[in-house]
């Protein structure tokens, strides 16, 4: 069970220096508890992607603090030496497009990360199958990504994000390419998975149709976040 959640305090990110410097994040505060799905919304250029990259340990913030549970991972500098391992073990990613590996079948796409981490192939595939069953795509386990529908691909991508039991999942516009029905299906799954695996899920989105599903929403504008209560209206 994950009891981490993610906590940001005054997170800042500046691109460039001197007169050309741009402050993309000007002090972001955010807290997402285990099992919670929050929305991160804002107009283009508001800093959503920059925040996601900082959360994903892909770029280094300029200042502030970031905690994973009680563990400080950033406090004006990285406190974790191996950011790659942090991404592999602690953070799951779901992208706008599924970006499945085209030359691996569905089950191996999901099981890839633990297999590369040295876990036995059979154990990794068992875990992948468990997730595929939970996401209702187990029947496509041996199919190639190109043979799946958009919704199926996104569910496989979610399974891949969950395979290492990460305490945090970062979803970058996961419903953008999907119609309303499939988009709601993905959000429903993210909520189920968050609840089932005690995972903190941050969903970056522009998608008006899924915004009402969040119980809490972070609006980001000009590099700052504002929290508000959402409707939490998840249609069954």
């Amino acid at each position: 069970m994950n009891l981490h959640g993610i906590h940001l305090e005054g997170l800042r990110k500046r691109y460039g220096e001197g007169d050309t410097a741009v402050d993309a994040l000007k002090g972001v505060d955010m807290e997402v508890s285990p099992g919670e799905v929050v929305g991160l919304i804002g107009p283009s250029g508001s800093g959503k992607s920059t925040l996601l990259k900082c959360l994903g340990a892909v770029i280094e913030p300029t200042g502030g603090r970031m905690r994973l549970g009680s563990e400080i991972i950033y406090d004006d500098r990285w406190h974790i030496r191996d950011l790659r391992a942090l991404r592999r073990d602690q953070i799951g990613f779901v992208f706008q497009a599924p970006y499945l590996i085209p030359f691996l079948n569905v089950i191996d796409n999901v099981a890839l990360l633990p297999m590369l981490a040295g876990r036995k192939n059979t154990a990794a595939r068992d875990r992948a199958m468990e997730l595929l069953e939970a996401l209702d795509v187990a029947h496509r386990a041996n199919a190639w990504p190109s043979q799946l529908s958009g919704g199926e691909q996104q569910r496989v991508a979610i399974a891949r994000a969950l395979v290492s039991h990460p305490p945090v999942i970062l979803a970058d516009e996961p419903t953008a390419p999907l119609d309303s029905e499939r988009a709601m299906g993905v959000i429903r799954i993210l909520n189920q998975m968050a609840e089932q695996y005690e995972t903190a899920v941050i969903v970056v989105t522009h998608d008006e149709k899924i915004i009402p599903t969040f119980k809490r929403i972070y609006h980001i504008r000009d590099g700052r976040t504002h929290e508000e209560q959402g409707e939490g209206r998840l249609i069954a």
Binding site: V58, R88, Y99, I101
Partner: peptide
């Protein structure tokens, strides 16, 4: 795909 592999910790 390589970017994704690197992002997820490969």
């Amino acid at each position: 795909e390589i970017a994704v592999l690197k992002l997820i910790g490969t």
